[in-house]
């Protein structure tokens, strides 16, 4: 069997195809998808999650440290039970606060974690004690109008 120019062309084609896949993987996509075994799960209860979605990022000081794994309604307390998938290399204290924030005015919602002062760290399967719900714009506007009307009557 001898080498032909046909083999060369096929070689170029396959190299270009694999190169394209690698380029897509390295340049276009992000490797850190937090789906693997290098994560641990903790839970948090929120009164209202607003528009939070599954796979929304969890950030601490703006750095992505995990993703929302699942959202469900707790049928006893009528609160939303959110499962966090956190990267194993980041540990947070037991009295950390999780709040639902919005990136920009119309952006997607994400969870911000602020670590507390306690020395003991959260273990896999723990539940966060301190949470802050999403801001519902309608309620905020309602409160504002109610306050305005209230102060107007006094004067």
């Amino acid at each position: 069997m001898e080498r032909t120019t046909l083999d060369l062309w096929v070689g170029i084609f396959i190299a270009a195809g694999i190169g394209a896949i690698l380029l897509l993987a390295l340049k276009v996509g992000n490797m850190s998808s937090f789906n693997g075994s290098n994560t641990y799960q903790i839970y948090a209860y929120f009164d209202n999650i607003g528009g939070l979605k599954q796979r929304a990022p969890i950030k601490s000081a703006g750095v992505v440290v995990g993703r929302v794994a699942a959202i469900a309604l707790d049928p006893k307390q009528y609160k939303a039970r959110v499962t966090f998938n956190l990267d194993r290399q980041y540990q947070f204290s037991k009295d950390s606060t999780a709040s639902i924030l919005t990136s920009g005015l119309l952006g997607e919602q994400y969870i911000g974690i602020e670590t507390g002062a306690e020395d003991a760290m959260l273990k896999p399967g723990d539940t966060l004690a301190f949470t802050q719900s999403a801001v519902v714009l309608e309620k905020l506007i309602g409160q504002f109008i109610f306050n305005k009307a209230g102060s107007g009557n006094h004067n």
Partner: peptide, 8 residues
């Protein structure tokens, strides 16, 4: 925005 496992 593009996830390696989910999208690619």
């Amino acid at each position: 925005g593009v996830d390696l496992r989910y999208d690619i």
